[in-house]
Amino acid sequence: MTLSKEPEQNETQENNSSDEPELQPVNNDAVGYTLQNNELHITFNHGSDWIKVPVEKDSLFSGEYTGNRQELIVGSYILTEKKVAFLYSDDTDETNKIVIKYSNDQGETWQKGVVAESFPFMRFRKIAFLNNQFGYVILSGDRTMSQEYSLSFLTHDGGKTWEETSEPGNTRLLVDGGFVDENTGFMSFGTINPEEPDLYVTQDGGNTWSEAVIPIPKKYDKIFVQAELPVKEGDHLAVLVNQGPQGDYKGGKVKGKFISKDNGLMWDFSTEVQSMEVE
């Protein structure tokens, strides 16, 4: 089923006037943003000029998970020289519509693409583009204890229209998800006391999902328990399996690296790798 709507095009940019308080970027990336004055502004020249994004600040933090409201929710936006996009909930008509507001010309014009006409209050949210045309959105919501609803959506026209994929068939809490190409995608489950990785894969653009097989060597049983998002690596795929929130093997500072040569269905242990996320 396709849940899409024609975008609202050519919404004009708004630049902050000189008499407003000086804006300061939250991040140190090439494309900066700020949420000062309860508005979202972006800059492509380190703060010399600012462009107001036509999105209500509260919409950016709507859902079950609202972040700290001082910074955008990780994964909910794209900031590059060629494309900026913001994923948020539009509940103005009481349907809790999920939309993106995006610009391909550094904020000169803005377009709106409807990802889902209706969706439960979001917990996990993520948007990414692999090229100018193909992108994905991963959402979860409607959480009850340790269960929730998870779904992915794809666009093949740069964000104008979106298509809902089939459900993965797993209601555990979503850890992460994404696509490595237009056909191959993954969803990883199990955030609460995981004992083994729970990774699902599609090889047909989300029409069907299968549980990936990740045999854990006995030495690492109940140590490497949570799969991260696989990546392409040469002629194969690689995935890191971390220790989850309670891991203490070698101080919790290592992950298991696994390799797949059949595009994500079967995985074999490769080596331990140092975690760059643990101080």
Rank of each mutant, 00 (worst) to 15 (best):
T2K: 11
S4N: 04
P7C: 08
E8V: 07
Q13L: 14
N15D: 05
N15R: 11
S18T: 03
D19K: 06
P21M: 07
P21Q: 07
N28L: 07
N28G: 04
N28E: 07
N28C: 01
D29G: 05
D29V: 00
D29T: 08
A30N: 13
A30C: 02
V31Q: 05
Q36H: 04
N37R: 12
N37C: 05
N38M: 09
E39T: 08
H41M: 11
I42D: 03
T43L: 13
N45W: 10
H46A: 15
S48T: 05
D49L: 00
W50V: 14
V55W: 09
D58H: 13
F61C: 12
F61E: 05
F61Q: 09
Y65A: 15
R69I: 02
Q70C: 05
E71R: 07
L72Q: 06
I73D: 01
G75H: 07
E81Q: 14
K83H: 13
A85I: 03
A85V: 12
F86I: 10
F86Q: 01
L87V: 02
L87C: 08
L87S: 00
Y88V: 04
D90P: 09
D93N: 14
V99H: 04
K101Q: 12
D105V: 04
G107K: 04
W110A: 03
E117W: 08
F121N: 15
F124I: 08
I127R: 02
I127D: 07
F129K: 02
N131S: 08
Y136I: 11
V137C: 09
I138K: 00
S140D: 15
D142Y: 11
R143M: 14
S146A: 12
S152R: 00
F153E: 10
T155L: 10
G158E: 05
G159A: 13
K160A: 15
T161R: 08
W162K: 05
E163T: 08
E163K: 11
E164G: 00
T165D: 03
T165R: 10
N170W: 03
T171C: 00
L173Q: 06
V175H: 04
G177E: 05
G177F: 08
G178V: 06
T184S: 01
F186Q: 06
F186N: 03
T191M: 07
I192K: 09
D204R: 01
G206I: 07
T208Y: 14
W209F: 11
V213Q: 13
E228D: 14
K232P: 01
K232A: 08
D235I: 03
D235H: 13
H236M: 09
A238W: 07
A238M: 13
P245I: 01
Q246F: 15
D248R: 11
K250F: 09
K250Y: 05
G251D: 02
G252I: 10
K253W: 03
K257T: 00
S260M: 04
S260G: 07
N263D: 05
W267S: 04
T271P: 00
Q274R: 03
Q274L: 13
V278G: 05
V278H: 12
V278C: 10
E279W: 07
